[in-house]
Design a protein around this nucleic acid. Structure first.
Lengths: 342, 342
DNA sequence: AGGCACGGCAAAAACGTTTTGGGTGATAGA
DNA sequence: TCTATCACCCAAAACGTTTTTGCCGTGCCT
């Protein structure tokens, strides 16, 4: 009974107090100031549950994070930066982040999770991450008419709001760099093919090869989860064949670390016998041995972009079709790559 | 108007429907079943906002994550595992996780953040992480009479619910291992001293030295943030002095990676000239060069423990004083340590 | 037969907001 | 003077639950 107390205290009606605090213009400036001051003085805080019920909004933005590995015991650390950026933007606007996790990808369970979030009325908007080539989650959101932004693109006929990094360009860049260094046998250690980013990266890789009239070798395009273990295993599987690749472009820095470990085990010298390029410019990449040549993208800044877009969509200041932000990726040269061996 | 529709549809009163669905025992088994079935049939979902208002509970558990570095653009990746564990437990019970972030530690701003979470009625319970030696957040929660569990201990006169890993034992273990390998000049590259875990680790380190009648060298106990960069810088500052330590115990695997980089730059061979031990057994630690000897703790499992404890506290099945779980830490020997050089 | 406990259900209050649809008095225009 | 407009404010409905209170009938005990 808090706003009624405040109203009584001020000798005003509840509705006037409510409208004063919410910035409606049908209350005089003098009254508004009086209300705001008194509210602060007696420490009034609107009850969020009541506010939600009254307004029909939750002031929460939902995100469901995919587990990094099959064990479901962790989340790709990239999302920590992304969410930091999102929170930085939405918190000042009074929004909170409602986070859930998805242990393993299972279409039915995933749909149920999102269904619950949306239909259950838990959130006003959604952030969709780790988009797949064809992603049923978009349809779910559209059907429920709930605003959403995806981090990563997908194949969709209808326009939707997305923020992404230029995966294709990035891997074109990295592959070209290796080609310029004289490499001709370049492997792509990619992420799961169901994710659109993996396809885009492969496209960049293939374009780079094609521009030099090189035929891609299908056996050198591999898919794994994004962990060190996977990078290690895939790289090893390539090294025991002959001829083996002389260069590896990896989907994450973690995979690159795994690949480097495999190369070292094979007695190869990284940066001379063999070249490895990672992706993400993780804090570790500058300190491993050798320092990792990698691709940098500004995840935190992307998160802020996502946050701003969500707010604008919620306020209907913008249409989903207007949210298309493709971040360029820059290559950070270090020591894990070098001229192709003779 | 959903429950009224369901009630009308069933020819029952709203209250009976509500009580049937919520498992009260003053409704007959037959009626309950009828209600539950019909609810599922017409796809009824209680509106969480209304439920919150009615019941005065939010069914949300709050957590405020501290930024990993001073830039505030990321969160210690350990928390990803911890929260995975928490969510695994609380989600089936109908609770959600409300996550916020704290860019930089600033007592006033932190208090305001927690104050808002609690007083604002956003959450039913709180998870407090990265505990300091004296932690004002406990008082805040106690004053507000809101249940909470800390991950990490603190100095407090009153009992409180905590889950922690045995930091003291862990660092006693690591230091003893190095002593057994013949090292006599062992440095501790610790976390910020305001965190209780850092003090406990130092205590373990000191106890190990004392048990061999060794005097600690204050200059060899350093504090930094938990990043590679910090580990690198601190280690380097020790290596340029004479005599330099022959072994380093680090507060995180990341710091250990940084320290290893510094040793390599100094021309030292890791595992023979110098030994480095990390903490956390991150996925990377098995793949770096050399593979990192480190200490393992089960963050995900701890998160599950935390989640269960929170649920029990909320249901008043247990008292805060009963939640005291100290997880043992095991050492994972790899190749980054070895016998002390002559 | 009367009293009592109790199982099963319903009516209504409570939760604390937001939003809707006026209403009042002052000012301006005819 | 009368009417229209406007700035400002209010009463009441709405939001969809949970919880409290009480009622009614049934069966048991005395």
């Amino acid at each position: 009974m808090s706003i009624v107390l405040l109203a009584k205290n001020l000798g005003l009606s509840i509705s006037t107090v409510s409208r004063a605090l919410n910035g409606y213009d049908d209350v005089s400036a003098a009254t508004r100031e009086r209300v705001v001051l008194r509210a602060k003085a007696i420490g009034y805080r609107p009850n969020p549950s009541a506010r939600r019920l009254g307004a029909g909004k939750t002031s929460a933005i939902g995100v469901i994070l995919p587990a990094a590995s099959s064990t479901g015991q962790a989340v790709d650390s990239m999302y920590s930066s992304l969410l930091c950026g999102v929170v930085t933007e939405i918190e000042p606007a009074g929004y909170h982040l409602l986070a859930s996790m998805q242990a393993k990808h299972d279409a039915a369970r995933e749909a149920a999770l999102y269904e619950n979030f949306i239909r259950g009325g838990w959130v006003d908007a959604l952030l969709i991450v780790r988009t797949r080539v064809h992603d049923a989650r978009l349809e779910l959101c559209r059907a429920a008419k709930i605003p959403f932004v995806t981090y990563g693109r997908t194949k969709s006929d209808e326009p939707y709001a997305w923020v992404d990094t230029d995966n294709e360009k990035a891997f074109h860049l990295a592959t070209t760099r290796l080609l310029d260094l004289g490499h001709r046998r370049i492997a792509l250690i990619n992420g799961p093919d169901e994710y659109y980013f993996a396809q885009l990266r492969r496209r960049g890789y293939l374009r780079a090869l094609a521009s030099r009239k090189l035929k891609p070798e299908p056996a050198w395009i591999l898919h794994g989860d994004l962990t060190e273990g996977s990078g290690h295993e895939l790289c090893r599987s390539l090294l025991i064949r002959s001829p083996a690749p002389t260069a590896f472009v990896c989907a994450t820095d973690s995979m690159a670390i795994g690949a480097i470990a495999a190369c070292r085990e094979a007695g190869l010298s990284i940066g001379s016998d063999v070249s490895v390029i990672g992706y993400g410019n993780s804090s570790l990449s500058a300190f491993c041995d050798p320092p990792l040549t990698t691709m940098e993208h500004q995840v935190f800044e992307n998160g802020r972009y996502v946050g701003r877009a969500l707010l604008q969509l919620l306020r209907k200041e913008i249409q989903p079709a207007d949210v298309h932000y493709l971040e360029p990726v820059v290559l950070v040269p270090r020591k894990s790559d070098g001229p192709a061996p003779q």
